[in-house]
C-alpha cells in the first residue's frame, strides 16, 4: 500500500502535495471501505437511517483525526514494545469523550447508536491509520489523513444510509419522501433494506461500482 510508506521530509506549505495526497487519497483511490474493506461491521449496523450514518461518520472522522494528531505528536517517545496499547488508550479516551458529548446533546441518537459508538475503539480504520500513518508522519499531515479517511468512510455510509432509509422505510432524515398515494397503489417498503444482509448486498454493489470506476483489481 502506498500510504504505509513513510513520506520523505519534504518542506512544503500547509497544503503541499503530500498534505493534499493525505487528504484526498482515502476519499477515492485508497478508500478505507471500498479499497481496503475495513470498518464493514459498523457500516452494516448503523446505516438503517441517514442521520445515524452521518453521526457515526462524524464520530469516526473526529476520532481518527484527533487520535492521529495525538499519536503523531508523541510518536518519537512511544516505546515500541507497548505502542499498540498506547494507541488503544488514546483512541478509547477520544471515543469516550465523543460518547459523552452525544449523551449530553443528542440523547435520542446516542440511544439508537447504543454500543456502536463505543465500538469505534475497535474500528480497524482508526488503529490502521495510527499504525500505518501517524506513527511515521508529522501531526498536521496525520490530521489531514485522519480527516480524509473519516470522510472516505462517511460518504460510503451516507450512500448506504440514503438507499436503506428510502427503500426500507420510505423516509429520508425522518421525513416521509415516498408519498402515501404510492403506498395506496400497492407499494410496500422493502424489508430486506432494514436488515443487515440488505446492507451487505448494497455495500458489495457499491464496492463493485467504485472499483470498476477507479480501475482497481485484485492481483
Amino acid at each position: 500500500m502506498t500510504s504505509t510508506a513513510t513520506s520523505p521530509a519534504t518542506k512544503a506549505g500547509l497544503f503541499g502535495p503530500d498534505a493534499i495526497k493525505a487528504l484526498k487519497d482515502p476519499l477515492w483511490d485508497n478508500n478505507p471501505i471500498a479499497f481496503q474493506i475495513l470498518g464493514i461491521c459498523s457500516s452494516l449496523a448503523v446505516t438503517t437511517r441517514l442521520d445515524k450514518a452521518l453521526v457515526m461518520g462524524i464520530g469516526v472522522t473526529l476520532v481518527t483525526a484527533l487520535s492521529n494528531v495525538m499519536i503523531s505528536c508523541i510518536r518519537n517517545f512511544i516505546p515500541n514494545k507497548i505502542r499498540i496499547i498506547v494507541q488503544l488508550v488514546v483512541v478509547s479516551g477520544v471515543v469516550i469523550v465523543f460518547d459523552q458529548f452525544l449523551k449530553a446533546y443528542l440523547f435520542d441518537l446516542s440511544k439508537q447508536l447504543s454500543v456502536f459508538v463505543g465500538l469505534i475503539i475497535t474500528n480497524c480504520i482508526v488503529m490502521g491509520r495510527l499504525e500505518a500513518y501517524a506513527m511515521g508522519n508529522p501531526p498536521w499531515r496525520s490530521f489531514l489523513d485522519g480527516i480524509g479517511n473519516g470522510l472516505g468512510y462517511m460518504w460510503i455510509l451516507a450512500v448506504v444510509g440514503v438507499i436503506r432509509e428510502i427503500f426500507g422505510s420510505g423516509k429520508l432524515l425522518g421525513m416521509q419522501v415516498i408519498p402515501q398515494a404510492v403506498y395506496d397503489a400497492g407499494y410496500v417498503n422493502n424489508g430486506l433494506m432494514v436488515l443487515a444482509p440488505g446492507a451487505f448486498v448494497l455495500l458489495g454493489i457499491i464496492v463493485w461500482v467504485q472499483r470498476s470506476i477507479s480501475g482497481y483489481s485484485e492481483k
Binding site: I78, P79, I85, V86, G93, V97, Q100, F101
Partner: peptide
Amino acid sequence: FAVTVCVVISAALAMTS
C-alpha cells in the same frame, strides 16, 4: 510512559465527564 499516558487520559476524561 504507560503511567503518564494513563494519568493524562483519565484526567481529561474526568474533566469532560
